[in-house]
Computed example of a mutant assay.
Amino acid sequence: MNTSFKTIVISDVHLGTKGAKAKEIAHFLKQYRCENLILNGDIIDGWQLKKSGSWKRKHTRFFNRVLKMIENHNTNVYYLRGNHDDFLDQILPLQIGRLHIQTDMIYESAGKKYFITHGDVFDSITSNLRWIAYLGDIGYTFLLWLNRIVNYYRYKAGLPYFSLSQYVKGKVKQAVSYIDDYEEELAKMAKSKGCDGIICGHIHKAENRMIDGIHYLNSGDWVETMSALAEDHDGNWQLIYYYEIDFKSQLKPEPKEDSPWGEIREVAFENRKEDLDSPSYRF
C-alpha cells in the first residue's frame, strides 16, 4: 500500500515517561511521508518530568525525525497543546517556518471541516468527572508499571500482549461511562462549531466512527495502543496500528535516479475498527 498520505495525526506520546514508545514512533514516522503532521497533545509529559520522569536520547530522536520530515519532505507540522504539555501555554501561539504550535485548529479537506483538539477541554465541560484526570496521572502510571510485570510473564509463557489498563477501562462502570460521555460531548462540540467531524486524543482509545452524523476520530496513544490516524489524498481516514505493520518484509530499495525521494516503500496494515476561537487551515 502507498505510504504517502495527506495528513497523519498522532497524540499522547508522553515523552519523558517510562511508558513512552519513542523508538517505535520514530520508526513509524520513518516509514511514511505526509503533507501535514498533526501532533495532537501530550507529546511531552510535563507532569511526569516535574516529578519522576526523565528525558532520554531516544525522546530527542523523535523530534529529530519530525524536523527531518519538515526539511526533507516539506511537511507542515502542527503541535497542539494537551493537558500534560500545558507548559506550552507560555508561548502559544507560535510559528517557526512550517512548525506551528497552538491550542487547537480547524482542518478543512475534501469538502469537509474537522475541529482538532487534544480533548482535555471535555474535563472542564464536565467538572464532576475531573477525577478521571487524576486517575489517569496516578492510577494509569501504576497500571502501566504493573502491566510490564504481567506481560513479562505472559511473554515467557508464549502468550500475546495484554493491556491491563484497557481491561480496567472496560470493566469499571465509571470509566466506561466517562468514555461514552466524552465521545458524545466532543461530537456535540464539533456540531456546534459547524464541523463535519472532530479529531482528538486524550483518553488513549483509538476510534473511527460516526456519532449522530459527526465523524468522530481518536488517534489513540503511543504508550500501549501505538496507533495513528491517516488521511489519504481522497479525504478517507483510517487507523494505523504499529503492531500491524510488517516491517520485516520491507527491504530498503535503491533510490531511483529520476526521483528526488527514491522509491516509496510499502507496508502492510489493515483497519480496525466550549467554545474556543480557532484558526482555520485549508489544505
Rank of each mutant, 00 (worst) to 15 (best):
S127E: 09
W145Y: 14
S165Q: 10
L146F: 10
P160G: 08
T126K: 12
A133N: 15
W131N: 11
N128T: 14
I132Q: 15
G136N: 15
Y155S: 06
N128E: 15
A175N: 00
G136W: 04
W131T: 10
L159T: 08
Y140T: 13
D137K: 00
A157G: 08
S163D: 12
L159F: 02
Q174M: 00
G136M: 08
L159A: 08
T126I: 10
S163L: 01
P160I: 02
Y152G: 12
A175P: 00
Y153W: 03
Q166K: 09
I125G: 13
P160F: 04
Q166T: 02
T141Q: 12
S165E: 05
T126E: 13
K173Q: 07
W145S: 15
W145P: 05
Y134N: 09
L159W: 02
G139D: 08
I125T: 03
I125V: 15
W131V: 12
I149Q: 05
A175H: 04
L159V: 00
K171D: 03
Y134C: 05
I149A: 11
Y167M: 11
F142N: 04
V172R: 02
R154Q: 03
I125M: 06
I125W: 14
S165A: 02
G139V: 07
A175E: 01
N147I: 01
K171W: 11
D137C: 07
R130S: 06
A175L: 12
G158Q: 12
A157E: 09
S127P: 09
Y161K: 13
S165D: 04
D137I: 05
G158S: 14
L164P: 14
I149M: 12
G136V: 06
K156D: 02
K156I: 10
I149D: 02
V150T: 06
G158W: 08
S165L: 03
A133M: 13
K173D: 04
F142T: 11
G158I: 03
Q166D: 07
I125A: 15
R148I: 04
F142Q: 04
I149S: 05
L135K: 13
Y140F: 11
Q174H: 04
G139H: 10
D137P: 01
